[in-house]
């Protein structure tokens, strides 16, 4: 849209090259990311897991809930790619559908976490009068070990995947809020924030247009790690029977169910375990890569 305007401009002796269209893919950040080995391998790992989850119904034709006594404990092979479990259900189907739920729970936590963490962090960082109160509350939350608190909350709310999401979001939000607050404290002192105040911008506009967009880098990095932790923690909760309830497969409850048969059928626990490890590793690599590229302390000042 802005291009038309530029096109119709009157000529002003340009000393520098004429207008050019830049796509985001040519931006230096993207270029550096694509050159970052860790980031790229993380992205590939996640892409594999993500595509598998999205196309689970195409890739796994058999119903993950279909029980068959005759095919119990089939080892991985040509017929059953990942083998079968104690109910004779296809592990391939269960792991793929499990990926869906595990990733969705992770994503849910990330979204809630991003919204509330940003909200609390921005309020605490921007309005100094709220800072003390909000930060003491987050401190209280952070005093508990993560998994213990998550177990406590799900136990109180009742088991189930939605409650697991709520519990994990509640547990991680204070951590995100702290990170957002720290960057808000830096950005709010920038002169462009003062310039916005000088134009008569409202607090809301200043936060939304000027502060938050410039706090995104550490937040994005943090969220990739939160994603990884929540996928892992959800597995723990499911393993303890507090997450998604059987027969719905998640990686956590597949591992939980398989643990009794770990001697006879180790693939039941090993395969979702590998998938989990791959996902977490992918997210961590992605996060590390993003941090390397986005962290202003490592960025070379240009201009």
């Amino acid at each position: 849209m802005a291009n038309e305007i530029v096109g119709g401009a009157t000529a002003v002796a340009p000393a520098d090259p004429a207008p050019r269209r830049r796509s985001r893919w040519q931006s230096p950040v993207v270029r550096r990311l694509l050159r970052h080995r860790m980031f790229v391998s993380g992205a590939i790992l996640l892409l594999i897991v993500g595509l598998a989850a999205i196309f689970a119904d195409l890739l796994a034709p058999s119903d993950p809930l279909k029980i068959s006594i005759r095919t119990r404990f089939e080892p991985p092979g040509a017929e059953w790619l990942f083998g079968t479990d104690n109910f004779g259900r296809s592990q391939w189907s269960r792991v793929l559908y499990g990926a869906r739920l595990s990733l969705m729970i992770g994503l849910g936590v990330v979204i809630l976490n991003a919204v509330f963490g940003t909200l609390v962090g921005a309020l605490a960082g921007y309005f100094r009068s709220l800072d003390n109160l909000l930060m003491r509350i987050t401190d209280a939350f952070m005093a508990f070990p993560v998994i213990l608190l998550a177990i406590g909350i799900t136990a109180a709310l009742g088991p189930g995947s939605l409650n697991a999401v709520i519990a994990l979001a509640a547990v991680y939000t204070p951590r995100t809020a702290r990170i957002v607050r720290a960057s808000v404290l830096v950005v709010r002192e920038m002169e462009y924030v003062e310039a916005a105040r000088a134009m008569g911008a409202t607090h809301w506009r200043i936060i939304w247009h000027h502060i938050l967009p410039n706090c995104m880098a550490p937040l994005i990095v943090q969220l990739t790690f939160i994603f990884a932790y929540s996928v892992l923690s959800e597995a723990v909760l499911s393993f303890l029977g507090l997450g998604a309830q059987p027969p719905t497969p998640t990686w956590g409850n597949i591992i939980a169910e398989g643990r009794q048969y770990i001697r006879e059928a180790p693939w039941i626990t090993a395969i979702p375990g590998i998938a989990l490890a791959m996902t977490v590793m992918g997210l961590n690599l992605l996060g590390d890569g993003l941090r390397d590229v986005l962290d202003p302390r490592l960025k070379v000042q240009q201009g």
């Binding site: 134009m199 008569g200 410039n214 201009g303």
Partner: peptide, 21 residues
């Protein structure tokens, strides 16, 4: 806020005064 348009400010640091995004 309404008056702000009539009285403005120009800053020292040309790097900090513009939102980079």
């Amino acid at each position: 806020r309404a008056l702000r348009g009539k009285m403005q400010i120009i800053f020292q640091d040309p790097y900090g005064a513009l939102n980079p995004r």
